[in-house]
């Protein structure tokens, strides 16, 4: 649709590229400098020395443990999402009962409920069942809040499965369960990987639920570790930047290998 190059838009997008890239450059280059050098030369200068001490410091301050906790939370959330969302989306797309239509509206409504709005009762609930300061207590609400968007994304994928395919299965006299496992799941692989990556990202980056529902160092996740690191060693900027960089590495790796799934999920998130 565009035949001539659009120079104005090109320049504009290049400017925004600088706005995005410069902070990331400062972050990375800062992590390899000593505190003294970073303080003397300023953040925008080119590094003249090279050290890995900041990463050593960050890991020594407990980030290994925080990573493990975050991985546990992420795996738990993705498992719950992959267990609950496919049957739900299947029912939403294919069920003829009125209840299923109602459920879809219910989840659309759920999209609009901010976690902050329910954090006090969730805190009460988790406390009452004795899961305070326990990673399970973080996993459950995080997974619940990932459900609406994942349902929306997966229902979109499942809607693309044509009625003819179901009719072909009807010839074999298949039950709904058989159709689900033999037809719907295999044809929804793209959507399934999208919701897996998407809910993993939400879990990895989650902050509010861990902040409210955990307390001790044994249950601290990476995002809370960063916050804590900042309050305690805010003056050690290269160390802080190293911690931030470490927290991003897994996500950037996923981005590298699953970019398509992620971008589609995010587009779906907006396109509701």
């Amino acid at each position: 649709m565009k035949t001539r190059p659009n120079y104005l838009a090109g320049v504009g997008s290049f400017l925004w590229l600088l706005v995005v890239a410069i902070p990331l450059y400062v972050m990375i280059s800062g992590t390899f400098q000593t505190r003294a050098e970073f303080g003397d030369n300023g953040p925008l200068a080119f590094p003249t020395s090279f050290t890995l001490q900041n990463y050593v410091d960050a890991i020594a301050s407990g980030f290994g443990r925080y990573f493990l906790n975050t991985v546990i939370v992420t795996v738990g959330v993705v498992a719950i999402v992959l267990l609950l969302v496919p049957p739900l989306s299947y029912a939403i797309v294919r069920s003829q009962s009125r209840a299923a239509s109602f459920v879809f509206r219910f989840f659309l409504l759920g999209l609009a409920i901010p976690a902050q709005a329910v954090i006090v009762p969730v805190f009460y609930l988790i406390n009452t069942v004795g899961l305070y300061d326990n990673l399970v207590g973080v996993i459950l609400p995080t997974a619940a809040f990932a459900l609406p968007i994942c349902t929306l994304i997966l229902s979109g994928t499942m809607r693309d499965i044509t009625g003819e395919l179901y009719e072909a299965m009807a010839m074999d006299g298949a039950s709904p369960a058989r159709a689900f496992f033999r037809l719907v799941l295999p044809l929804s692989k793209g959507g399934l990987s999208t919701i897996a990556v998407f809910s993993a990202l939400q879990a990895w980056n989650g902050f509010l639920f861990p902040l409210i529902l955990t307390q001790s160092e044994n249950t601290r996740v990476v995002t809370l570790g960063l916050f804590n690191f900042q309050t305690q060693y805010g003056i050690n900027i290269p160390g802080l930047l190293a911690a931030v960089t470490l927290s991003m590495v897994p996500v950037l790796l996923v981005y590298l290998f699953a970019r398509r799934a992620l971008v589609q999920g995010l587009m779906g998130a907006g396109g509701k």
Binding site: P87, L88, S95, T151, Y166, P176
Partner: peptide, 14 residues
């Protein structure tokens, strides 16, 4: 066709 018409129960756990 009634194939691939799951009941409401499929939506219940979530």
């Amino acid at each position: 066709s009634s194939v691939g018409r799951p009941g409401f129960i499929w939506a219940l756990p979530a």
